[in-house]
Design a protein around this nucleic acid. Structure first.
Lengths: 161, 161
DNA sequence: ATACTTGCAAAAGCTTTGCATTTTT
DNA sequence: AAAAATGCAAAGCTTTTGCAAGTAT
């Protein structure tokens, strides 16, 4: 077994494929970030992405992570989120509409989707005379201690951070 | 008619009253900010509050505006919002629950309240095993040009910026 | 008199950018 | 070869803070 390097590829990650589809010039750094993102199922901030990247190969600077993440956002591959705490966090864009509930005690992020919610928001905007372009929604909650046999959520929760 | 000064009061503003109730030490600067806030029905950022304040009396610094606004937030008199654009904006806390729809073309902010929405969000959180502590919701929309005789909104819109 | 508030300028924290150099296409 | 990406350090922005001086209770 040998150490994978920056320029050598070992299969194309999901996000790298998206980058190629959109015609991005693929450098070793971008491949590395694409791989790190593809393997992340949470919502890392730039600092964290940078940490995960240099753990694999340190020929990358944090400026490049910032630039790449912004580029991927512009290309619709990533979505920028704000969960509080002052830094932007990133989420893969193509996992279907979902929202986030942040556990205020632990900081954990729970994703959920909900069609009733989606429909209601669209209707509200429409009633005000607007076509909904974007929704920013974060719920902050505290785990219910007295949970009376936790009901199965209807909103198909997707993944936890 | 004469020029009102920093230390002289001309009636107590709504927000000043709240400050006093919560036992804040009332300086001329705080009275000034309280008055500016009381007379604002939009969602100013700190820079804008500072501008409005010095227009009345310039014996105040922006550091004090930052400190005061933070204090008022801690005391539950103001709520901090993020409508994009990188700076925090402030909203009086006691006007009942409402949400915001931002016109992406003009930046105008429309407030609305909606009980169905409120109920649904609470239910969603509950289904996930959480008690809802706080909601951050902003809708971004574009005015519908082909508005077929604008329907009266149901969600009792409150005020416009 | 004591504890708190203010101003100023400096510092912090996140993010962007200018420029010379390297890399991709 | 031309166009674009990278690294580094510097700069940008909003917001916070240390400290000496001033003010409210």
């Amino acid at each position: 077994m040998h150490t994978p390097s920056l320029t050598e590829d070992q299969g194309i990650s999901r996000i790298e494929r998206l980058c190629i589809e959109r015609g991005l010039k693929m450098t070793g750094q971008r491949r590395l970030i694409a791989r790190v993102l593809s393997e992340s199922s949470d919502h890392p901030d730039v600092e964290e992405l940078y940490r995960r990247a240099i753990a694999r190969d340190d020929r990358i600077s944090i400026a490049t992570v910032y630039r790449t993440v912004r580029l991927l956002e512009e290309k619709g591959i990533l979505e920028r989120r704000d969960f509080g705490g002052g830094r932007a966090r990133y989420d893969q864009a193509d996992r279907g509409h979902h929202y986030h509930l942040i556990d205020v005690d632990t900081g954990k992020v729970i994703e959920f989707a909900d069609e009733r919610l989606e429909a209601l928001l669209g209707r509200i905007a429409g009633d005000l005379g607007f076509r909904l372009e974007d929704t920013r929604l974060e719920l902050f909650g505290r785990r219910q201690p007295e949970a009376p046999a936790p009901v199965r959520p209807r909103g198909k929760p997707q993944r936890q951070e």
